[in-house]
């Protein structure tokens, strides 16, 4: 099971950071572990995600666990994980894990292809693909964080101005920030550590064995299944966006 981290601390940290950033300073990530790591290093990283618009503000812990053939992200607020695995032939598949429901939605490589959302492994590994970053984002200078050189880049993602602060040797962003007229959505690195040493552990094999598994392809035939009805609301569709914007 997951070890809970203190969300209050995370929220406070995020709030403080936002306030300080506005003033031109900021609470910087702990880069001690990262300093000695390379781009292909396995690690557990903890981020804070901060979203703010005219009427809402929220902060949540978000985790990235990466190892040679597996990348997992865990959103503590929603208690959901995305696990991406790469098999011996390089085929990527996904498991969406709904921990509260003890349910795993499996999306095969073929279904990722069919849905048009088969990601590049580099993207999953680094949150943003370094190659794309160099092609589509413009350098806007750099800065030094606790003795570590950080590249700053800016570009448009789906028409939204996005700023990335990038640790090139480790292939990892310390900041991903999207700013639009509606608000700000950003993810900030808190710290990384060796696999298995962070405050939260990746989903275990035993958890996956204990959970119910559903194939993405079968969702359309399971409309009367209570669990599918509940996770359907979490999977989202376009009208969620509209509703979100109005409520």
């Amino acid at each position: 099971m997951y070890k809970k981290i203190n969300l209050i601390h995370i929220s406070l940290l995020a709030g403080l950071w936002v306030a300080c950033t506005d003033a031109g300073t900021g609470v910087e990530p702990d880069l001690e572990f990262l300093k000695a790591q390379t781009a292909d290093a396995a690690m557990s990283c903890q981020f804070v995600r901060h979203s703010k618009d005219a009427s809402h503000q929220s902060d949540a812990a978000w985790f990235l666990f990466r190892s040679s053939d597996r990348v997992e992200s865990f959103d503590e607020g929603s208690q959901q994980s995305q696990i991406w695995e790469k098999d011996q032939n390089g085929r990527v598949s996904e498991m969406r894990v709904f921990h509260a429901e003890k349910l795993v939605l499996e999306v095969s490589n073929g279904d990722l292809l069919a849905s048009g959302h088969l990601p590049k492994w580099a993207t999953l590994w680094s949150i943003v693909d370094p190659e794309d970053l160099s092609k589509s984002f413009k350098p806007i200078g750099g800065r030094t964080v606790k003795g570590v050189s950080v590249d700053r880049l800016q570009g448009l993602v789906e028409g939204v101005e996005t700023t990335v602060e990038w640790l090139k040797p480790q292939a990892l962003p310390i900041l991903w920030k999207r700013t639009s007229e509606k608000g700000v959505d950003e993810v900030r690195l808190v710290r990384c550590s060796a696999p298995g040493t962070g405050p939260v552990q990746p989903t275990s094999q035993q958890q996956l064995l204990d959970y119910r598994h559903i194939d993405f392809s079968d969702l359309g035939d399971m409309e009367s299944d209570p669990q599918v009805q509940r996770i359907g609301k979490l999977l989202g569709h376009g009208h969620d966006h509209e509703e979100d914007d109005h409520h």
Partner: peptide, 13 residues
Amino acid sequence: MKIKPFLVLTAAV
């Protein structure tokens, strides 16, 4: 703006 799970990774993708 309700926060959607996985937005971070989705956005990156």
